[in-house]
């Protein structure tokens, strides 16, 4: 029986992602855990997260999750980051006055605003609310196994106030537009990470989770 560790560092609702994994793969053992041994033994690792980045990073460091993530990524096993678990993989976030993150990808996590710090206005004149909350279209920019069976431009569910601006655009697997174009999925070797919530994105989201559970981590 293959297994997946959903890393529990006390932030947010892990029930949703665990239930979605159990739904798409009843034969996979889903462990919600922070135990380094269990994470190390698992065939796949998922880093979720909601809430403020400062609190998330503090708990990630306090519980040693930073090392678990580094080990999992180095091991070559399939690794998926979601939402704050995606942002945490970046170098730095502007949230909470500036927070250093794990640095697995080069780039910055920025607030949805213009250079003056004012709210963004869409080309049709509409003011853009923050958080970016709801279903938006994702353009697939890499032909990746995790997009298999998902139409380009499918809508996924987002809820976030900060977005990823990756330094290496060649690693961007998907992008989206909300006043600005931003990077909503990154892929490198055995790592895939998304800003949107596949566990809340209905059939396309479940398809992505299913793809992850069948992925050998090669790209």
């Amino acid at each position: 029986m293959s297994s997946i560790a959903v890393i529990d560092y006390g932030m947010g609702n892990l029930h949703s992602v665990a239930k979605a994994l159990e739904h798409v793969a009843p034969n996979v053992e889903v462990m919600v855990t922070a135990d380094p041994q269990k994470v190390s033994d698992a065939d796949r690792v998922l880093l979720p997260g909601v809430g403020a980045i400062r609190d998330c990073m503090a708990e990630i460091r306090r519980l040693g999750v930073d090392q678990e993530v580094a080990d999992a990524i180095a091991s070559g096993k399939p690794f998926l980051g979601i939402c704050v678990g995606y942002q945490a993989l970046m170098q730095h976030s502007q949230e909470n006055g500036g927070v250093d993150c794990l640095g697995h990808f080069d780039g910055e996590v920025r607030y949805f605003c213009n250079e003056q710090g004012d709210e963004l206005i869409e080309t049709n004149g509409e003011r853009l609310k923050v958080p970016h909350m709801g279903w938006n279209e994702v353009r697939q920019s890499l032909d990746h196994p995790l997009w298999e069976g998902i139409a380009d431009g499918s809508r996924f569910y987002f809820v976030h106030s900060y977005y990823v601006d990756a330094a290496e655009k060649a690693l961007v697997a998907g992008n989206c537009h909300y006043g600005v174009d931003f990077d909503v999925a990154l892929a490198r070797d055995n790592v895939f990470a998304t800003q949107f919530h596949p566990e809340k994105s209905h059939t396309v989201g479940l398809q992505l989770l299913n793809n992850f559970l069948h992925w050998d981590g090669k790209f």
């Binding site: 979605a20 566990e199 994105s201």
Partner: peptide, 11 residues
Amino acid sequence: VERMASQVFIP
């Protein structure tokens, strides 16, 4: 809510 969360995958 628990039952809903294991069967319905939207917010």
